[in-house]
């Protein structure tokens, strides 16, 4: 009686450590950066993304729209902890998943009854960065919502599919050749640990969607329209793939 119990316990332990080893092999883009950029991300007074977080904090408290309500009138900041680490999620009463920016936009038009925030606009990214920053340091934890499963599968399929004039898939670079150099740049494993994040190349804060568009354009594929479900499907897949990794927003990347 004792023996199976001991076995079960040691097996569970081995499983846990195997999972940990497997998890430890994944690398955030942060780990591929030089020390100077890592320091820039880690230091809130040097991280350019924090300027957007601060702007987002102001917008969070500012009433808007016909409802004349601020985000803060409905949401406690404590409730925002962990939200970004689990998005995308199904929209309430909706049949489609939305990402964090989509959630903010929906709140803006439906609840605040305000003008929609344009995709990739400074206001939208700032609000998203402020909410995302509340999850900094938490493990990425996508919800176990069965309604997300078909979208996750769609995202996985897109990830594996060759596209564009260069006939490449996400997986060719970010699974099969991650860590190698594309020109001078280390190919990251494409874990969305830091979004919205500040890219020096953009000289701006940007969303994961913007990053996905960049890659599509790079392989000379037709970028999806900005409201396409394909992006959210990819985001769901990538967040699931990064499950358990530490959420870093606002990240800094080259």
């Amino acid at each position: 009686m004792l023996l199976p119990a001991v076995f079960a316990a040691s097996f569970a332990l081995a499983q846990a450590s195997a999972d940990k080893t497997a998890a430890d092999k994944r690398r955030s883009g942060y780990q591929d950066m030089g020390a100077a950029l890592q320091k820039m991300q880690d230091d809130d007074t040097a991280n350019p993304g924090m300027l957007f977080v601060q702007l987002g904090q102001q917008l969070w408290a500012k009433p808007a729209g016909a409802a004349n309500k601020a985000c803060a009138d409905c949401h406690s900041l404590a409730d925002m902890k962990g939200v970004a680490a689990r998005y995308p999620a199904m929209a309430k009463d909706g049949d489609k998943p939305i990402d964090l920016e989509g959630r903010v936009r929906l709140c803006r038009t439906v609840n605040q009854q305000a003008e929609p925030l344009a995709p990739e606009s400074r206001e939208l990214l700032s609000l998203a960065a402020f909410v995302a920053n509340q999850s900094r340091g938490l493990p990425i934890a996508p919800p176990d919502d069965p309604r997300l499963a078909p979208f996750r599968a769609q995202g996985a399929a897109i990830y594996q599919r060759r596209q564009g004039q260069l006939n490449l898939s996400c997986a060719i670079c970010h699974d099969d050749n991650a860590g190698k150099k594309l020109a001078g740049v280390t190919i990251p494993e494409a874990h969305p640990t830091g979004y919205p994040l500040y890219r020096l190349e953009w000289q701006a804060l940007g969303s994961l969607k913007r990053r996905l568009r960049n890659c599509l354009i790079g392989i000379r594929a037709e970028a999806y329209p900005s409201d396409a479900v394909e992006y959210v499907a990819l985001e769901i897949y990538l967040m699931d793939r990064a499950r358990g990794m530490v959420f870093e927003s606002p990240g800094v990347r080259p």
């Binding site: 564009g164 006939n167 599509l216 000379r220 037709e222």
Partner: peptide, 9 residues
């Protein structure tokens, strides 16, 4: 045999 090639290409 290529998929979703961007319009300019």
């Amino acid at each position: 045999g290529l998929q979703r090639v961007a319009k300019p290409f």
